[in-house]
């Protein structure tokens, strides 16, 4: 009897401990969401308050743009070539190769250009922001700004988020053009189509709503990448290990949210199209 009682008490204790651990994890999760929400909404308050650090925003725009330009050029061009090469056989079966520019226009400008740019920037820019701010946090540089009466959120976060929100749409536009150029080189090699005719055909298939959706998407992606990188960096702990963790989490979370936003925005655009 005593052994049974002892066992049941131990079981109850284990269940009790698990409950406490679970409830702590839920608490931490909810606190984390609240913290992220406050961090994000603070951006909209601070962004419109003086002083404005325009020069730093421009510096960061250059940083974001230059950091990703080469990779986006190469990736964009390759995507254009490969996607055209892979689509050609299917269209040839239907004798519809003349539709290649239109198909590429839709695929590259509406979907692939913005998405590929966002993923590259999430990897390159998001991780870099996360690591930079994380390192500033663990080496007390952010505290040093605060005690010098400089608002670190305004100087570090607002400027970086503004830069990604401005630069990533421009990079996505550039990526779409380069991808279309890649596609053009393949089409030109096979069918001797002129560049003007190719771009005209590609853009003819796109409506204003398509272009507007693409632009909106890239603005949202840019904001997401910037704010996630800054949030993870700003909340880095545990020394150098925390810096690596912040950079890694910034990339993973930004990529996940980019995909999620892609689905939501495309769905909203489709609803608008059908109504």
């Amino acid at each position: 009897m005593r052994v049974k009682d002892c066992n049941s008490t131990m079981k109850m204790n284990t269940i009790g401990t698990k409950k406490v651990v679970f409830s702590k994890a839920v608490d931490n999760y909810l606190i984390g969401i609240d913290k992220a929400y406050r961090f994000t909404t603070r951006f909209f308050i601070e962004a419109f308050k003086k002083p404005f650090h325009f020069r730093e925003v421009i510096n960061q725009c250059f940083e974001v743009g230059l950091r990703s330009l080469a990779l986006i050029t190469v990736t964009g061009f390759i995507i254009g070539v490969v996607f055209t090469k892979q689509s050609r056989p299917s269209l040839e079966d239907f004798g519809a190769t003349s539709w290649l520019p239109s198909l590429m226009g839709i695929a590259l400008v509406k979907a692939l250009g913005p998405l590929v740019t966002a993923l590259i920037c999430a990897g390159k820019v998001g991780s870099s922001i996360g690591a930079e701010l994380g390192s500033m946090k663990v080496t007390e540089q952010i505290d040093a700004m605060e005690v010098s009466a400089i608002n670190p959120y305004k100087y570090l976060v607002v400027t970086r988020v503004m830069a990604t929100t401005i630069t990533i749409p421009l990079l996505a536009l550039y990526c779409s053009f380069i991808a279309l150029y890649g596609s053009y080189t393949n089409v030109h090699a096979e069918e001797s189509t002129g560049i003007t005719l190719f771009y005209q055909s590609a853009f003819k298939s796109l409506s204003f709503l398509d272009l507007f959706t693409s632009l909106t998407k890239t603005i949202v992606f840019g904001f997401t990448i910037g704010i996630i990188g800054c949030y993870k960096g700003f909340n880095a702990t545990q020394g150098t290990r925390g810096v690596g963790k912040a950079a890694n989490q910034a990339v993973v979370l930004a990529m996940f949210l980019v995909f999620l936003e892609e689905i939501v925005i495309v769905q909203i655009a489709n609803w608008i199209r059908y109504f």
């Binding site: 500033m136 540089q141 605060e146």
Partner: peptide, 15 residues
């Protein structure tokens, strides 16, 4: 804060 100076353990220079 402008009237208070803080010298950090890690120096906290902007690298």
């Amino acid at each position: 804060r402008l009237r208070i100076g803080f010298s950090f353990q890690s120096s906290a220079l902007y690298d």
